[in-house]
Design a protein around this nucleic acid. Structure first.
Lengths: 142, 142
DNA sequence: GCGACTGTTACGCCGCGTCATTGTGC
DNA sequence: AGCACAATGACGCGGCGTAACAGTCG
């Protein structure tokens, strides 16, 4: 019943490259056992890696993920640990909200710029050949 | 009437560090004239830098910005150049939209995880001392 | 003895931050 | 002579990608 994986199998299953798994090991996030030189990943290792990848997807840094995993591994002060994790999540939510606002701002800016440029193109179609002293593209953007 | 700036003045006015301006120069994005060794930025240089910073804010890479600026500098094929810029903007809008979706997904994941963890904490408050075999924090997340 | 996999080592990328060191001008 | 600015050069970070080369297994 012992499911194990080679680095190739597991990285493929997780949708990452072997390099990524070796990198995580180098950073102390995972510690597969060895058979000779080759890494052997257990089901537990896989679960842990899935948590790591989940953490990455939702925007935590590898250092933060390692901190949380290490803490939960020690199992000390479970309740305190939960509160700590909650505060981590809270701050991450703030960061994500900020990023979202920034992106909305950027979308607005790009969209407005496109509108201006499209306007310039339409003018060109109408009055063709006229030598309107063309404004440089991005100047339209501010 | 010739407004010029030292690197300290201009970087301060633009809200960046001198290092940033030197870096952009190193990357061929800007070419201030020199007085001896010191860089002297003109009003034109400033405008160009404002365009660069605008581009950064809306998510273009420095390489893309350089490409667009170089093109518009040549001034050749103005209409074609406008169309090219439009396609740049279009692709950037797509990237931004994707990023926004990813962030929304992440926000959802973190928020749900927080809800679960908060639930665990509430249970602990009620049934305190009971040795519920605590699930590791992040396992709640998937 | 070939190919598919594994391993290690180490440099590259991007957008700068951050020293360390050496001018230069007032 | 001191102080604030400027200059260059080089390494650091984060999260891997991408060789380059060697070993191992079927």
């Amino acid at each position: 019943l012992q499911t194990t994986y080679s680095i190739g199998e597991l990285s493929h299953a997780l949708g990452v490259t072997p390099r990524t798994l070796r990198f995580y090991e180098d950073k102390g996030l995972i510690h597969p056992r060895r058979q000779g030189l080759s890494r052997i990943y257990s089901g537990r290792d896989r679960a842990r890696l899935e948590l790591i990848l989940l953490g990455r997807r939702v925007g935590f840094s590898l250092a933060e993920i390692k901190a949380m995993l290490d803490h939960s591994e020690l199992g000390e002060g479970r309740t305190a640990q939960l509160r700590l994790a909650l505060s981590h999540f809270g701050r991450q939510l703030e960061r994500l909200a900020t990023q979202k606002r920034d992106i909305d701002t950027a979308i607005g800016a790009v969209a407005r710029t496109m509108a201006v440029v499209e306007g310039m193109l339409r003018q060109r179609e109408l009055a063709d050949g006229s030598d309107m002293h063309a404004t440089v593209v991005m100047e339209a953007a501010e």
